[in-house]
């Protein structure tokens, strides 16, 4: 059995690691971006971001002052039993990690009727799913407000097809990308239902940058969107250049015969996530 305390401990460790250490795949992609960026200003900005990653790791300080909302994804093994008050343990871990690691408290009590800062960055936003085997995979993403604000959902018609998906993603990045701290990681969800498609787009940000989609049809779509996004010229920092995205990740799913839901969840240059296995 996996206890709630063990899950809380994993959440704590994942938050501290994600806040201060750029994902290895993002670091490699950023170095590659610096090599292929053609704008001198863009190269200078990518140089700042690489130096930023070094300072954050060396001094154990946050990569970005927006240390985000906390999204916790718990994938429970089908043969596993989880005991205890998991949401309470997760929120206690969030409060402790944000205080101990000197992270920023960025959550208000209610979006509209009470915008008082909760002062401990709770509550976390928790999703629970199942996977094969035993144990629990605990994944944490710290999502900045600026890049989340750059995200969008649209319910296309099936006849809009792949062209419609490409157009919606490109127009969203063109409209909002310069404010979302490029170079971006563009997460795209296609399918499911109105409420689930945004979650697919967010999960797309978890895939390591540079790892191609296993389905060659989806991989081709990713390359097509990536070319359209690069052609926008937004560049590092939004100040012009040939590298606007470190990657474009698409997740597809079944859907209703009447629907073609599509969502874009924009990840910033400091895309932050970490996973911990709890046995």
């Amino acid at each position: 059995m996996v206890g709630a305390e063990a899950i809380g401990s994993a959440v704590y460790d994942a938050i501290v690691r994600a806040a201060t250490t750029l994902r290895p795949d993002a670091l490699a992609a950023m170095r590659d971006a610096e090599a292929r960026e053609r704008s001198p200003r863009g190269r200078a900005i990518l140089g700042q971001l690489l130096e930023n990653a070094r300072i954050a790791a060396d001094d154990a300080v946050p990569l970005c002052q927006d240390t985000g909302s906390v999204w916790v994804l718990l994938e429970v093994g089908e043969s596993e039993c989880v005991g205890g008050d998991v949401p309470a343990a997760v929120n206690a871990a969030v409060a402790a990690a944000y205080a101990d690691a000197h992270l920023r408290m960025s959550i208000v009590r209610d979006a509209l009727v009470d915008r008082t800062n909760t002062k401990d960055n709770t509550p976390a936003f928790i999703d629970i799913g199942f996977r094969s085997g035993t144990g629990v995979t605990v994944t944490v993403m710290l999502k900045g407000g600026g890049s989340d604000n750059a995200s969008a959902v649209s319910m296309l018609a099936p006849g809009d097809g792949e062209d419609g998906v490409v157009r919606f993603v490109t127009e969203t990045v063109a409209r909002t990308g310069a404010s979302a701290c490029p170079p971006l990681l563009v997460g795209v969800g296609v399918g499911a239902t109105f409420d689930k498609v945004a979650s697919l787009a967010k999960r797309a940000l978890l895939r390591p940058i540079g790892a191609p989609h296993p389905d060659p049809r989806v991989a081709a779509l990713e390359r097509r969107i990536a070319a359209e996004v690069e052609a926008l010229g937004i560049g590092p920092g939004g100040l012009g250049g040939t590298v606007t995205a470190l990657g474009v990740h698409v997740v597809t799913a079944p859907c209703h015969i009447a629907s073609l839901p599509v969502a874009v969840n924009v990840g910033c240059s400091a895309v932050r996530s970490a996973s911990v296995e709890v046995a």
Partner: peptide, 10 residues
Amino acid sequence: AAVGGAAALL
């Protein structure tokens, strides 16, 4: 404009 995401450096 400063560089978003370069907050440890800034």
